[in-house]
Simulated scan of single mutants.
Amino acid sequence: MSKELSYTIEEVSQLLKVSKLTLYDLVKKGDLPVFRVGRQMRIDAKDLDDYIKKHKTNQNTTFAPSVAVPHKNETKGNIVISGQDLVLDILGKHIEKHSAYKPLRSFTGSLNSLISMYNGEGDIVSLHLFDGDTGEYNLPYIKKILVGYPFILINLLSRKAGFYVKKGNPLNLASWTDLKREDVKIINREKGSGARILLDEQLRINEIPTRNITGYEHEETNHLSVASAVSTGIADVGVGIEKAAKIIGIDFVPLITEQYDLVILKTPETEQLISTVKGILSSNQFQSEVNSIGGYDTSQIGKIIYETY
């Protein structure tokens, strides 16, 4: 082995026929020295040879899996949580408090975050993707996008989605079909967001061409910006969640109950992360903090919606 200058964790895993999880554990304990080239962790060939020689005569020494470190950045334990709901900030705080992970926040929309996960980016992705054909949330999209990847889908909460309208709802907007009225101007969300998917699916179900929707091309990138556009008169209506309407101080017309879930890929490296998230979601302290905000249904929090094996 010493003919090689150095190895990646993946290469050593293949050479020794052990999991990367085992190797990460040895690195954490200081039993196997490593160095880094950028973000990549490497093992010097001589250090690997020394480790093998040291343990050759010790018949009691075995490779035993232990706590995994996150795959995104092994040094600091960075993980990325995608989504915009403020409950994700509370989740991140609890993860940092109860584990070695350092949560980072991405405010990318649901569909774009799911695609990023397929491409190897993102650790916890929050989803509220409505499928008009089945009436289900999230799972139909995951099965189509995370092809070949094992994953777990866990419920975080349910919340109301619908229309942001001016105080008193002067245009009397009450259903999706009202959006095709000539006197109604909407403010849209960006492509790939859960609110945009919801709108587009409802327009498809109700056979309303997007060309008939005034303002359809005008996009904002978050719930608060959409609600603000309605509040200031830029638009008559926008699609989003109830919480933003209360923050901005406009009226809200509930149209659907969204299932808001978390998806995490199942790998040896994420085993501990999944366990940590499950523990947090089931804790009274976390649930109490979420419920104190108001406007959320946490009756199914922590429920495993789907899991591949």
Rank of each mutant, 00 (worst) to 15 (best):
N155Q: 14
L157N: 11
R159N: 12
K160G: 07
A161G: 11
G162Q: 02
G162E: 06
F163E: 00
K166R: 15
K166G: 13
L171A: 11
N172I: 04
L173T: 02
A174Y: 08
W176C: 08
W176A: 03
T177V: 12
T177E: 15
T177P: 09
L179F: 00
L179C: 03
E182R: 15
D183Q: 05
D183E: 13
K185D: 02
I186S: 10
I187S: 01
N188I: 00
E190I: 11
G192K: 02
A195W: 00
R196S: 09
R196D: 13
I197F: 00
L199Y: 04
E201F: 02
Q202P: 07
L203Y: 09
N206R: 13
E207S: 15
I208Y: 04
P209L: 11
P209W: 09
N212D: 15
T214G: 04
T214W: 07
E217C: 05
E219A: 10
T221S: 14
N222E: 04
L224R: 11
A227S: 07
S228E: 13
T232S: 14
A235C: 05
A235M: 04
V237C: 08
V237G: 04
G240M: 07
E242W: 06
E242Y: 11
K243Y: 14
K243Q: 13
K243H: 12
A244T: 07
A244W: 05
A245H: 09
A245S: 11
K246Y: 10
K246T: 11
I248N: 01
G249E: 09
D251A: 02
D251W: 03
F252A: 02
P254D: 00
P254I: 03
I256Y: 08
T257M: 07
T257Q: 10
T257Y: 08
E258L: 08
L262H: 02
K266V: 01
T267R: 14
P268K: 08
E269P: 03
E269Q: 10
T270R: 11
I274L: 01
K278F: 15
G279C: 04
G279V: 12
G279D: 14
S282P: 09
S282E: 15
S282R: 15
N284T: 15
